[in-house]
Design a binder for these strands. Structure first.
Lengths: 152, 152
DNA sequence: GTAAGTGCAAATGATTTGCAGATGT
DNA sequence: ACATCTGCAAATCATTTGCACTTAC
């Protein structure tokens, strides 16, 4: 009973079918969750959301489908810290600044990495994808709280 | 029987003692390994090296000591991919570019992140430590091999 | 002597895998 | 029909923790 089948959902389902993959209930529900979520979710969170519509869907099914969708290029995942990976639509890709002190996450667009990307390409022929891992550091508040780092 | 007690080892051992920590055999051996290694090592690799001198040292002891040394500021660790964490002396800190295709690692100095760091500070008051996670991307060879990415 | 450190075994958390049965096409 | 998917249980991998025993100081 999902109210409004988002257009994006149909596009993705279509891509799955085109690939010869089958469109099953758990798979469709997962895609709907990802589209509805917008931002990033852990596999466990996605499983919980999917289960609210189909209680028997197993975590391993979520992982298998996320992997499938990742191969398809529809989904990607990022590691924001020591916890579980975060999954999101490839279209919602963005970099993260994560504070080591309080865990706060800041989102940043690709511009932040423009210079880094250019340098890496010029010096190493290396094409940066700055989205897979977070950039760790400390936010203003935490630096003040600790007071240990004399800001350069 | 370690041949030449590196000066750095003694400095670190001294710092441990100053902190009230005890200087045990596994601890001293671990510090020696880290100094000798220069580059990064997994906990498992360090355990293997330590065991060649003291066979009963347990992995958990290695982890506990790495944590201790990290609190002391002597050691830090980085995540270069989906495998285990890499540990190294804090003085040997550097950023990594890891190729998603072939796993090749390139080391880069802090200059690569100068612009990113400045921007993050200016825009978010966020102090970047670009060493905890690798920067993922693809090296020239892999991009050519796949041929899929028309380089911009 | 005594608290910090150690070895071991068992727990944890995230993710993966093998397999028998269910299901989309 | 038949391969693909799924649910489940068990395995794996990196890391952590509880506990009784050692050891540095």
């Amino acid at each position: 009973m999902p109210a409004t089948p988002s257009p994006a959902v149909e596009d993705i389902v279509e891509a799955l079918r085109a690939r010869g993959a089958r469109v099953t209930t758990p798979r469709r529900l997962l895609v709907e969750c990802l589209v509805r979520a917008g931002g990033h979710r852990t596999a466990e969170e996605l499983a919980a959301e999917v289960r609210s519509a189909a209680p028997d869907v197993h975590l391993s099914t979520i992982y298998r489908n996320l992997e499938e969708l990742e191969h398809l290029g529809v989904v990607s995942h990022a590691h924001l810290g020591h916890g579980p990976a975060m999954y999101h639509l490839a279209t919602a890709t963005h970099a993260h600044l994560v504070c080591r002190g309080c865990g706060a996450e800041l989102e940043a667009g690709p511009e932040l990495f423009a210079d880094l990307a250019r340098e890496a390409m010029a010096r190493f022929g290396f094409q940066v994808e700055p989205y897979h891992f977070a950039v760790v550091g400390s936010c203003e508040r935490c630096r003040r709280a600790l007071g240990s780092d004399p800001v350069p």
